[in-house]
Simulated assay, not measured.
Amino acid sequence: MSSPQPDPELREALLVLAGLPDDSPALPGQLSTIVRLSAEVVDPVDFASITVFAVEGHRTHASSNEVAEAVDLAQYAEDAGPCLLALHSGETVGVPDIGGVVVWPGFRDVAWRYGVRASLSVPLFAGSGVLVAALNLYARDAAGMRLLIQRVQSCYLAGPTQVLPRMDAGSEQFLAGLADALLSRDLVQRALGLLMDRDNIALGSAYRRLVEATEAGAPVTGTANAILRQYAS
């Protein structure tokens, strides 16, 4: 008999985030949900947190426990580390062997002290496609984290990628959520491009029109899909 599949809540949470307007009051709660579920259902992950932009630079919006927050704070203190690189570059940043890190000594030393041996920081975005946070995943077992790093990085690469082994059900749920979110971002960007070309307006104006045309509480992806269908017809 096969083992029961975890509830698909994490996959749905990532997809919902990708469809929220950037200033939605639901966004902070959605980020907190993603942190909690990532630590609960993704097998290689022991601790998780979310880094966001703040007036003073950066802050941890939510964490699964004090270990994740301590590792985040070490990066803020040096204004350098994988979570900040992911947040500013929009690229996934995997550290499969924290003990071998040279460029971020503060991050390395604090993480090692708490038993963290590998990490992965994943850029997250809301409806406009602009980065809103970095999801930080920390693991005690470097070997278990290595494949997750490879699989997540492959999600963000354009074009054909190497076929990698499947993982536990929670990790597969997480990966499916990331893939869904990236497809949603592409959908919204295509709709915004259409509005910009059709109405000769800037990106910011196109995004505002998209949000204004979206019913309160509904995802902007639904409106974007309707715009593309209307154009195709």
Rank of each mutant, 00 (worst) to 15 (best):
P96S: 11
D43I: 02
T60M: 13
Y138D: 09
V110L: 08
I98N: 04
D109M: 02
A111P: 06
G81N: 01
G99K: 00
S171G: 05
V52P: 05
F125D: 07
Q150N: 08
F125P: 00
A143W: 02
S171F: 01
P165Y: 09
T161N: 13
W104M: 04
G90P: 04
E40L: 13
V163R: 14
A68P: 09
V110T: 14
M145R: 02
Q75S: 08
S119V: 07
G100I: 00
F47K: 07
G170S: 07
D79S: 07
A139C: 14
S63T: 13
L148Y: 04
D79F: 04
D97I: 00
S171T: 01
D43F: 03
S171K: 01
V101I: 10
R108G: 03
A48C: 14
A54N: 13
A111V: 05
A54K: 12
G127T: 12
R36M: 10
C83D: 11
V67K: 03
V102Q: 05
L73A: 14
S154H: 14
E40N: 04
V67A: 04
G129L: 06
L157W: 08
S171A: 15
S89G: 09
S64G: 09
L148W: 03
V52E: 12
I149L: 03
L164M: 13
G127R: 14
S63C: 15
V52W: 05
D168T: 10
F53N: 07
S38K: 01
V110E: 11
R117A: 11
P165F: 08
P160Y: 08
G57I: 10
G106A: 00
V103K: 11
L135Y: 06
Q173H: 04
A158D: 14
V152N: 11
L131D: 04
V122D: 02
T51F: 03
G159K: 11
G170C: 05
A54E: 15
V102N: 00
G90H: 04
L175R: 03
R146K: 13
R166T: 13
V67Y: 03
P96V: 04
G100C: 03
G129H: 07
V93K: 08
P96L: 06
F174E: 06
V45P: 01
G170Y: 01
H88S: 12
F47C: 13
V42K: 00
S63L: 07
R117S: 07
E91D: 12
Y138V: 02
G129I: 06
E172V: 03
V71G: 05
R108P: 02
M167L: 14
Y138Q: 13
R117T: 02
V41D: 00
G129N: 05
H61V: 12
S119M: 12
L84F: 04
D168F: 00
G159F: 06
C83F: 11
E172G: 02
G90M: 02
H58K: 10
A139Q: 07
P96G: 08
S171C: 06
S121L: 00
H61N: 09
D72V: 10
F47V: 11
R146A: 15
S128N: 12
F174K: 07
D79R: 09
P123L: 11
L147C: 10
L87A: 11
A133C: 10
E66Q: 15
A80K: 05
V122L: 06
R140P: 02
P160F: 08
N136Y: 02
Q153V: 08
S63G: 15
G159R: 11
W104F: 12
